[in-house]
Design a protein around this nucleic acid. Structure first.
Lengths: 137, 137
DNA sequence: ACAAGTACTTTGTTTTGCAAGGTACTCGTT
DNA sequence: AACGAGTACCTTGCAAAACAAAGTACTTGT
C-alpha cells in the first residue's frame, strides 16, 4: 500500500512554503522548526530541513544569527527577510490557486460515481490489452 | 525568480491524484487527459503522463482497452477500477488533511505581520554570521 | 576523562517530472 | 505507389528534492 508514499509526495511541494511560514511567525532554530511542523502534521526530517534552509538563505529569503545558549552547542536562529515575506505571499497565493484547481478536478468524478460514461466514444471496440495488428516497437 | 519552480513542486504531489480523478470521471485517452488537466490549470506533459499511467495500471488502479478510431492510430482508453476508485477516495481525504494542515501553518505569520517576536529567546546574542569560536569542520 | 545530549552538516539513494527524441499507424496529396 | 503531415504511444537521460544514515563538534554531567 503506497498511500503513505502518495501523502509524502503531496507534502513535498509545500514544505518550502511551510518552513518559510514558520520562520515568518517568529525567530526559530531548526529543531524547533521541525517540532512545530510535526505539531501541524507536517513531518520533516533534518536531512531535508538543513539543505532547504541553506537554499532559502542563499536566495535571500531568510537570514540567521548564531546564538549561544545556557547549555548545548550554539544555534542558528533564523528570521525571514522582507524579500522572504513577499515571496511567501506569492507562494501562498499559488497554493490557494492550486487548491481550487485540484478541488475542481476532484469534484468531477464525485458527480458521476458509478455511472456509465456520459459520452461513449464513437469508435470501434477492439479486444482488450492488444494493439490491433502489430507490436509497436 | 523561481516562483514557477515552486509552483511546479507543489503540483507534483497531486498529479497522480488528479489523473486518477480525470479518468474516474469517464473513459479517456492520454491526449484528452492532458487537455482536461490543462483546462483545469494543471499542466502535465506526455513524458510525465505515460509513465504515470503505466504505474497506475500495474498497481491495478486503472485499466485500458485499445480502440481504433475513424482516423489516426489506435488509442488506449483508460477507465478507473474499483480499487482505483477506493484509492482515489483515500487520496482525496489525505489531500483535504494536507490542505487544512498547510492553511493552519500559513495562518500563523499572518497574525504577526511585521511585529517583533512575541517571545525573545532567553539567550545571549552573538555577532551575526559567525560561529562562536571555531569553524565547525 | 568519558559518555550522553544537542545542533549542525554531508553523502548517497530514490523518486518524479520533464525535455527531447523515437516509432508506428493513418490519411491526403501528388 | 510514394511521401509528408498528423496523431498517439513510448523511452531515455537529466535535474530537483526528500530522506536515511552517518559524521563532526560543542556542552554538560558523572
Amino acid at each position: 500500500m503506497d498511500l503513505e508514499n502518495a501523502k509524502a509526495q503531496m507534502r513535498k511541494g509545500v514544505l518550502e512554503m511551510c518552513v518559510l511560514a514558520v520562520v515568518a511567525e517568529r525567530e526559530t532554530y531548526p529543531p524547533e522548526i521541525i517540532e512545530r511542523l510535526e505539531g501541524a502534521s507536517l513531518p520533516m526530517k533534518e536531512g531535508t530541513l538543513y539543505p532547504l534552509l541553506v537554499r532559502l538563505k542563499s536566495d535571500g529569503l531568510v537570514d540567521y544569527v548564531w546564538r549561544e545558549g545556557i547549555k548545548g552547542p550554539p544555534r542558528k536562529y533564523f528570521t525571514i527577510t522582507a524579500e522572504g515575506r513577499a515571496f511567501l505571499g506569492e507562494l501562498a497565493a499559488s497554493w490557494r490557486e492550486l487548491v481550487s484547481a485540484v478541488d475542481r478536478t476532484l469534484a468531477l468524478p464525485a458527480s458521476r460515481q458509478g455511472q456509465p460514461p456520459g459520452e461513449p466514444p464513437p469508435l470501434l471496440h477492439i479486444e482488450p490489452q492488444r494493439p490491433p495488428d502489430d507490436e509497436r516497437s
